[in-house]
Amino acid sequence: MRPITYSRATDPQSAVATVSADPTSDYLAGGTTEIDLLRQYVLQPRRLVDINALPLAGIESTPEGGLRIGATTRMSDAAAAPEVRERFPMLSEALEKGASPQLRHMASLGGNLLQRVRCSYFRDPLAPCNKREPDSGCSALTGHSRDHAVLGTSEHCIAAHPSDAAVALTALDASVHTLGPGGERTYPLDDFFLLPGDSPHREHPMAHGELITAVEVPPTPVARRSLYLKVRDRASYEFALVSVAAALSVVDGRIADIRVALGGAATKPWRARRVEDFLVGEVAERRAFAQAAQVELAEARPTPMNAFKVELAQRALVRALGTLAEGTGLEDGSPA
């Protein structure tokens, strides 16, 4: 780890002023990405500004019935909050299935959104990687790409977005509130995460020094019946091969409202709008789910190593929606 200086922020404005003024500075929240990647020389800030003492933690209901979750709210606190569990089970489950208990106690929700990809080439400073070092090339394209994305890829980057929570938040039409040198801003989450295109090093539209202050989840009645399905090799403590955040409301056998997003399979939390558009008004049955999933994955661009994700994502979509349609609780654990 390179030498760093440390500052503890006491008010958001000073934190923003400090980081904005210095391109070699980063915020430090939970540290689970920042310290890890600093030690590996993937990130090389000269200065860290600790924002943990800022009054940015906490969950409050909005007057409309949504939630405003402070940026430094810990994953475990957000997952356990009764209002999250009751109104947005998919978000609670996505948070619970992320990382490990210790990491969930550390990681902030804002940091979770900004966590960096798990691509082994991105995390290896000796390997070419356009995301880490623009124009150095993408090693994954011809390398080991089992864990990589099949949707939203470009010829410059195929790394999958690693966050579980962001998948649920994307399905829920959440928005990100920030404070920057120019003032406060709000981004719809689907616009907040950028596709790699030809600039995979740009992952979000924020300016340097812009600070996430909160994530707002709008009232979403359909989300009361929702789930997060995470498919992974290990039974716990692993990033998703494929995941699905889904909410479904069925009225008289037909789908009245639906929210779906995919994780693990795309370069950003992937709102499955084609699935949603296909299914609204349809009969809630397996065949329709399968057709919708096929439509969503039609534009998948896999590598030979991750081609299975195209099929797996479709099956996971069908499983998630089928489970909601049956009205049974969904468990991805073994029936042991």
Partner: peptide, 16 residues
């Protein structure tokens, strides 16, 4: 944003 955030002061640095 018209009510532009009050600009904060740059924080004291400890280290390296």
């Amino acid at each position: 944003d018209q009510a532009l955030t009050r600009r904060g002061t740059v924080l004291e640095e400890r280290g390296p």
